[in-house]
């Protein structure tokens, strides 16, 4: 009887501890998030707008995207140590040339995780990131691409221009976040761009953030996120294939790697 009571008390304590941890994580994260945003965004904006007077448009965008990366680095570190993020670069890519990054899409945190990549990069995002106050405005200013609200030909032309300028492009080809363990089907825009521009594709596997935060919620849960870049897919391998074949193979590679990552946890 005494043992039974002790187990019940322990279980209740455990439940309370988890709840407290969750409240602590979210309170501190969102507090720091708003503080950091209120400090970083206006400061960098003033610096960049002033600098624009003296520097070329191209250089302005390079610094602007570097500022986005800096902001992303800060945001990704805010929930530490309850949320840890590990980047594993297995791609061995030539950083001096632009790439097309293709990632699975788990959570609202994915665009932040991708913004940390040490390259000049824009993201192809769905409608919702553009609707986030301030951040959405800056994403648009940084020439992030809203594939849903532009004709595909215009999207292709803009993406080609960015690659020509040496800017890498990150895609979430699932388009939307999927509930459950399965990856959604991929849209073929990234792969059509790959076949037309010959820019290599780097598959990126994001694992561990399905609940950071979960779909339809803003609550972050503690955990470890791994962002693993895989060796690139080159145009030479697929020059005679359709975009569908490229997307199926890239999706398969990401799926297999995520399965390996989940076994390792």
């Amino acid at each position: 009887m005494a043992l039974c009571c002790a187990v019940t008390v322990l279980a209740e304590n455990n439940w309370h501890m988890k709840k407290l941890k969750l409240i602590y994580l979210n309170t501190t994260f969102y507090l720091l998030f708003f503080l950091a945003s209120a400090l970083i965004i206006p400061t960098l904006s003033v610096i960049l707008v002033t600098a624009r007077i003296f520097i070329s448009e191209r250089l302005f965008y390079r610094y602007f995207r570097r500022a986005i990366r800096f902001y992303g680095q800060v945001v990704v570190r805010l929930p530490y140590p309850l949320v840890k993020v590990r980047y594993e670069d297995m791609s061995n890519v030539d950083k001096s040339v632009p790439h097309i990054y293709v990632c699975n899409h788990n959570s609202m945190s994915d665009p932040f995780l991708m913004s940390v990549f040490p390259y000049e990069m824009v993201q192809v995002v769905n409608v919702w990131p553009f609707s986030i106050p301030i951040i959405g405005y800056y994403a648009r200013l940084g020439k992030y691409l809203d594939v849903n609200n532009m004709p595909f030909e215009k999207f292709l032309a803009d993406a080609k221009t960015l690659l020509d300028e040496g800017v890498s492009i990150a895609f979430f080809p699932e388009g939307t976040r999927i509930d459950g363990a399965e990856m959604g089907s991929f849209h073929s825009g990234a792969f059509r761009l790959f076949l037309e521009t010959k820019a290599p594709i780097v598959p990126v596997c994001i694992y561990g953030n399905k609940k950071i935060p979960p779909k339809g919620s803003m609550w972050l849960h503690p955990g470890t996120i791994i962002v693993r870049s895989l060796p690139p897919v080159t145009w030479e391998e697929y020059q005679d294939s359709t975009a569908y074949v490229v997307k199926s193979n890239v999706r398969k590679r990401i799926g297999e790697e995520i399965a390996t990552m989940s076994e390792g946890q």
Binding site: S185, F186, H187, S188, T242, A243, S248
Partner: peptide
């Protein structure tokens, strides 16, 4: 089969 509207372009060509 996982095709999307853009894949239809390739399908038509084929």
């Amino acid at each position: 089969l996982g095709l999307d509207s853009l894949d239809i372009v390739d399908l038509v060509v084929e």
